[in-house]
Design a protein around this nucleic acid. Structure first.
Lengths: 241, 241
DNA sequence: GTAATAGTGTCTATAAGACAGTATCCG
DNA sequence: CGGATACTGTCTTATAGACACTATTAC
């Protein structure tokens, strides 16, 4: 006899304490060549004044993906991130001091600086450089959001290797050098420009050339502009170094 | 002002319908050179008589990892799988016809045939070959467990490439040929024996030789026995072909 | 002109994949 | 003995990484 069936059939809302299910989103973007995460400042206790990941309750008619999209839009004005992916669920019993809250965490990516977030209280929403967040003196995040954020960061770092996610962090069209800057910002390394170009162009369906070119201030010939190709999985993968 | 704070502070158990949180575990093992998943047969409606993944409710004092270990032990007698890892959370509103149930799914790996599962109703617990489960005529799984199982399978398949998880699917010590059979069973391919050996031995910390050897029936010199090394991440990764 | 960058050519070290061949065991 | 398997040697081909070089632009 399955315990699953047993416990489920005998479930009684009074038997177990109420469990709340939320979604929290770690949205990454690139600001001034450095990877940044979007945080909102809490206006109420607990952790009043502390910075936290955007998020909120799942509604009765929503699955977690829908709730994540809705919360992101409501809290930050970002209607459609270029990438949204479930990360992991955090369920430590005392992670919220008020009651049992299970959080389904998401990783999201959006290109460049988001436009002025209309309908949002700009004062309480900010992009934080992830390297600065690790420094001493940086604000501690509310709840276990520091852990969620660093898990999300690790996921993004490793997915850049074998997926085409890097193109979700820049506006299209882009130059190969701009794409390289994305990799360099996320991985915090320097990549060999000539070999990087060859590698990117050799991976089938990663980028496709457009007609346009772009000149950069400071010299150099105009660079060919590319847009993202159809490939989502890169094989062979990009190498961190 | 953060919606998160707003909704959370105004949370009232009566305002939202009760949400139940469960864990479900896809435990894989290898039986007769073929990858198999452990299923339990449901004794009550809904889906009475159907096969389902083992699982059950999270208790108030447990996080999901603890609950997954407990349920696995209670339902299948397996006290400590060699690997247990959170997969993904499934939250479609109507995935359980009785009430809102959010399931945190796990992937687990154990070597060889589990010993006779003491304390378990053997008649309602079975290992199913995953290739047979895909065939027409195979039983449909309860709830969305087919989807959970195939997501878990895909995760195991891809993690074999860049982690040392294959060693979790065989008893130690093992021969290189046995390790190769694991890869061949999970990936459903044939691998080149000589190159496989060289590759495995060249990856630092993947396997370490022991003093022992093992002779197989049917001929051939005794094969050197190895045990798992300290590496969890394989670099460079094993290639599917 | 000068500095900077885009893009190409090419050399070397390494690794994957294929195949041949030898040694050692079971029956 | 014959068949099967463990294990090694080696050849070919592909690729990563390094470096040199040319072309084209901003200033």
């Amino acid at each position: 006899m399955s315990k699953h069936a047993d416990s489920l059939s005998s479930y009684d809302p009074g038997e177990y304490p109420a469990v709340a299910v939320t979604v929290d989103i770690a949205l990454f973007t690139i600001v001034d060549d450095s990877l940044s995460v979007l945080l909102v400042q809490r206006g109420e206790p607990p952790y009043e004044g502390a910075w936290a990941l955007p998020g909120g309750f799942i509604r009765p008619d929503e699955d977690a993906d829908v709730a994540a999209r809705r919360e992101l839009k409501e809290e930050t004005g970002i209607a459609a991130p270029r990438h949204l992916e479930q990360l992991k669920t955090f369920s430590t019993p005392d992670r919220d001091p008020r009651m049992r809250v299970v959080s389904i965490a998401y990783t999201a990516l959006a290109p460049g600086l988001p436009p002025a977030t209309a309908g949002t209280d700009a004062a309480s929403t900010r992009l934080w450089s992830v390297t600065k967040l690790k420094r001493r003196g940086a604000p501690a995040l509310a709840f276990d959001h520091q852990k969620i954020m660093s898990d999300a960061l690790e996921r993004v770092r490793s997915k850049l290797e074998y997926t085409s996610l890097a193109t979700s962090l820049i506006r299209q069209p882009f130059t190969i050098a701009e794409l390289r800057h994305v990799y360099e910002a996320v991985w915090d390394t320097e990549l060999h420009a000539a070999n990087f170009r060859r590698k990117v162009l050799s991976v089938d369906g990663f980028v496709v050339p457009t007609r346009g070119t772009r000149s950069a201030p400071g010299g150099g010939p105009p660079a060919v502009l590319y847009k993202a190709g159809k490939a989502t999985r890169l094989s062979p993968p990009m190498l961190r170094h």
